[in-house]
């Protein structure tokens, strides 16, 4: 196992070499130095018990190929769009009431019109959803056109496709929640599209609606799927996706030529 490289610390954070005549262990004197020492000792305490710093260094300070560019940030951008959805979604859930008898619409109207910053947070969630879909497709196009899905990164691609499908399912289930006319009819149409699948379609639409008709528990079912089931799956799969990205390294852009390595070009030993 080769030793992990030490992180490239910026100049300001590197300890200065000891000057002649200075004592061996410099005592912290100014309040800032005391605070810094306290912070370091807390981090050291945790790291001594978890060895997390190795993993963080493995993840954050890995080698990347020459020629990477802004297109390589689209995956992180998608992840931050997801985090935006997660955070704003949790706070929207504090006001939302999945009540099909009219309470759902009223609670959304309350949080939009009355709650402090409610309009902003709801808009962040609503527009963030579209941003996330756009970023996913841009990220996917980057991976496709750069050929980054090829061996050994096929599993990363497959997990990415599952994440895309789950994000679509988030869009579908979230669309119903405001429970206005558009939500209602879009859901009727969407569920019926699922129902046109042969053999299993009717059971799938019954599962989504929690019964033969759009009923009292359809909304809460969509809410539970939207808020708990799929976000958990997405978070877990993002973890697997990132692990594979870090484990396999990222691919160089297709226009970067391989380095000349004379010993690799030998045809006979």
């Amino acid at each position: 196992m080769p030793k992990l490289p030490s992180p490239p610390l910026p100049k300001a954070l590197r300890p200065a070499p000891r000057r002649p005549g200075e004592p061996d262990e410099k005592q912290a004197t100014t309040p800032i130095e005391v605070a810094a020492d306290a912070g370091i000792s807390v981090v050291d305490w945790i790291d001594e018990r978890t060895s997390l710093s190795g993993g963080i260094r493995w993840m954050m300070f890995r080698k990347v190929p020459r020629g990477i560019n802004w297109f390589y940030t689209l995956g992180s951008a998608t992840m931050f769009a997801f985090l935006n959805q997660a955070v704003t979604g949790v706070f929207l859930a504090m006001y939302y009431r999945p009540d099909a008898a009219g309470g759902a619409y009223e609670s959304v109207r309350y949080l939009t019109d009355q709650a402090f910053l409610g309009q902003l947070v709801r808009a962040m969630h609503k527009w963030g959803a579209s941003v996330m879909i756009i970023l996913i497709f841009m990220h996917m196009a980057r991976v496709f056109f750069f050929g980054a899905y090829k061996y050994p990164r096929e599993l990363t691609w497959i997990i990415g496709v599952v994440l895309l499908i789950l994000t679509m399912a988030m869009g579908f289930t979230g669309y119903l929640l405001p429970f206005d006319q558009r939500s209602y009819w879009a859901t009727i149409v969407g569920v019926n599209i699922n129902g046109t699948g042969p053999f299993l379609g009717p059971y799938l639409s019954d599962f989504l609606r929690a019964g033969p008709e759009f009923g009292a528990t359809t909304l809460s079912r969509f809410y539970a799927i939207h808020m708990m089931l799929i976000p958990g799956l997405i978070a877990a799969l993002i973890g697997a996706h990132l692990y594979l990205v870090s484990k396999l390294g990222i691919s160089a852009p297709p226009w970067i030529k391989a380095q000349e390595e004379p010993e690799l070009r030998q045809t006979t030993l």
């Binding site: 099909a100 008898a101 009219g102 429970f179 008709e213 759009f214 009923g215 009292a216």
Partner: peptide
């Protein structure tokens, strides 16, 4: 009325 108990949505 198709579904009871959910107001106009039913």
């Amino acid at each position: 009325q198709i579904v009871q108990g959910i107001g106009e949505a039913g």
